[in-house]
Amino acid sequence: MHPTPRGVEAGRLDLLDRRLLFFTGKGGVGKSTVAAATALLASERGKRVLLVEVDAKGNLTDFFEHPRVGFEPVQVQPGLHIMQMRTDASLREYLRIHVRVPVLGGVGPFANVLDFVANAAPGVKEILTIGKVCWEVGEAIEGRAPWDLVVVDAVASGHVIAQLDSPRAIRELVQVGRVREQTERMSELLASPEITALNIVTSAEEMPISETIDLVASARAELEVPLGAVIINRLLPEPFTRADEPVVAALRTPPAADLLATRVGSGAEAVLDAVALAASLRRSRAPHLARLRETVDLPMVNLPYLFAHDHGLRALHQLADALGEELDP
C-alpha cells in the first residue's frame, strides 16, 4: 500500500482544484446535500461541473428544484450538470465504446443477461459505477469531455471502500485482457492526489463520528485513494458563552422568573426550556467532536445547521456560501 504523503493531505485545502471528488458518510448526515453544495459552489466559481448521483434514490435533483434526470447528464444550473448512475446503461455504453459490440436495442435473452449482469451480479455494480466515473474524468483530462470537476455523491461509508476498491478487486480476479489494463488505469487515476480526493461528511454525533474515524483508518490501510477533508455538517450554534450560564440560571429562579412572566407572559418558561434543550443538545456533541479532532489529522470543514430550510435551492445556496467561506478563510 502507498500511503498518501502527509504533506498533500495536510496542505492547502485545494479541493476544488482537483478533478474528482467523492463524498461519503454515514446515512443521514447530509452527504448528498454537501456533495450538491460543493458542486454548486464550484460552478459558481466558474468551473464546469458534473455531479454524479450513485445512490439509487434519484432525488439529488430535488436540491436544485429540477425534475429527475437519468444516465445522460442534464444541465440544472449554469455550468452544472447532473447524471444518475445506472449500471445497466453504463455496461451498454462500455460495450459500445470499448468492445464495439452493437448492443442490440435491448431485446432477446442477450439483453436480459446484460441487465442481470449489470444489476444483480455481485461486484459488477461497483466496477461499472467507478468505471463510468473514471471514464468521464479521463475524457475530461484529455479535453474530450466538458468537465473541470466531477463530484460524486458516493455510497454510504459502510460500502464506499468496496466501491472505490473495485478496480483492484477486479484486477485480482482478472489476470489478463482489456479489463485488466483498464482497471489499472482507473487505479492510477484514483490514486493521484492532484486529481482525486475522498471526502467524509459527518455530523457531530457518536455514530457518525465513530464511522468517520474508522473509515479514515481503513481507507488509509486498504485504499490508494487520497483523503480530502472531513466535513462536519449541521453544527449547532453556540448562543451563550460560559460566562452567560449564571445569567441563564438566574432567569429561571425567582424573583427574575416571576418578573419575566409578568413582562412577556407565561411563555417565558417555555422559551427558557428551549434554551436548555438547545444547550444540552450542543453539549452532548462536544466530546464527539473533540474525539474526532484528536484522532483524525485531516482538514476539517464546518457547516452550520440550517434552521430555516432543510432542503431546496435556497438551503443549498446557504450551504455553498458557508462552504466557500470555510475553503477560503
Binding site: P237, P239, F240, A243, D244, V247, V248, L251, A270, V271, L272, A274, V275, L277, A278, F307, A308, D310
Partner: peptide, 20 residues
C-alpha cells in the same frame, strides 16, 4: 448589557427551534 444579550439569544434560540 449582558442580560439583554442573553435574553435576545434565548429568544432567537427559541425561534430557531420553533421553525424546525
Amino acid at each position: 448589557p449582558r442580560t439583554a444579550r442573553v435574553l435576545r439569544a434565548a429568544a432567537q434560540t427559541f425561534r430557531d427551534y420553533s421553525v424546525v
